[in-house]
Write a protein that binds this DNA or RNA. Sequence first.
DNA 1: GCTAGGTTCAAACGATCGTTTCAAACAAAC
DNA 2: GTTTGTTTGAAACGATCGTTTGAACCTAGC
Lengths: 218, 218
Amino acid sequence: MTETKIKILEAAEVEFADNGFNGASIRNITQRAGVNIASINYHFGSKESLFREMFHFRFDPINEVRLSRLREEQELRGGAPVPLELVIRILVVPVFELLLSEADQPPPRFVLAVARCLSEPLELFTRLGREVFQEVYETFFSAIRDAQPQADVKQVRLQLNFAVSSMVGMLTHFSRIEQFAGDPLFHRQKDEILQQFITFITSGISGCVAVNSQHEVR
Amino acid sequence: MTETKIKILEAAEVEFADNGFNGASIRNITQRAGVNIASINYHFGSKESLFREMFHFRFDPINEVRLSRLREEQELRGGAPVPLELVIRILVVPVFELLLSEADQPPPRFVLAVARCLSEPLELFTRLGREVFQEVYETFFSAIRDAQPQADVKQVRLQLNFAVSSMVGMLTHFSRIEQFAGDPLFHRQKDEILQQFITFITSGISGCVAVNSQHEVR
DNA sequence: GCTAGGTTCAAACGATCGTTTCAAACAAAC
DNA sequence: GTTTGTTTGAAACGATCGTTTGAACCTAGC
């Protein structure tokens, strides 16, 4: 990969994270990268293709980690379902450990860039989201279903929808909601927040099943 | 309120919901409303002010409902804390019953408009979010804290952050994530989805406290 | 040294953006 | 009927957008 291409990708992360997709401008990106305006269309083809390439470049490895870690656990158990909390942990950690980086170094911006751009209602992002996350979605859907034999399929689908929405919402709105409280929450350890979030989603999901089972028993 | 102003507000909801704030254009809004381009600046001053007015116009009544219902329950109990699930229900229902409207009528668009625009990283929306939601945030923060005497303040703040993120994420991404599954989830009754979501958040929050209490016991 | 292919550059393209202008149309008051 | 203040209209403003152009530049390979 050319040096110019790398510089553009790095600058694009920051620009997309700060301004969203529609708000980001080719001129700002190239200026930040210290390259010529035309180089984006030369190296990537268009603004959309630039985002697509940044998206894949950053999230494909993350998703591979998620899939391989889950498969490790599954093989380790030889057929027995992976516990729900562990499934959620494997889904959450690879992304959120990047957001909640240590205090001495700034968090990578591409997580925010992707989360914020995916919130924009462009048709492009519907396609891109599927392109990048479809396999992860289906694999973890099966794992969550396996972990809860008593839940029906539609319920699990709803649960995963809740979980993913929470995750994207957290990425997009954490810093902003944080400001409601006046002082930041990051005094807490990164690992503690991460664990609390995993617990939040896990408890939320298993709470749904518990309540629903009660309904069926009645 | 003038007829023109109302027509603009209605058109703006659709345009903002479909394209976000940066993606929405004054020309599309006025064209959809059937009014002159200049009328937005005449009646509202600017695109930003138009959004601000739409935001307040729609969400101030919703927030008043949330606050008054919570106070009703509090007075009904005369000092005793309102149960967590009921607090969450009062927070969630006034907004989500609009999103999950019945099949025979399309859902109002301003909910999506606000959720999507608030996801855009413009400084404007940090201010606007506080302007509209600060009081609700603080009031429900107290109620959630009261409902869980064993939880400490910072933990409750984190929980509310999780809850609000989930809510905004749900509004923004529900329809898109739904498409991962192939067929829509809305076969289920509106009330059932709503109850499941309330249970998800409630269980998530109380799950955090339970785990944390265990930690402290050790 | 020359050529060929890949890369960068300044400049411009057409389109669209939010906003402004100012005259025309309108309504209500006297 | 005239006046006054409010609302609409067509047109244009300056700015910025993503993209394209075509010449200049650079670096291997011969």
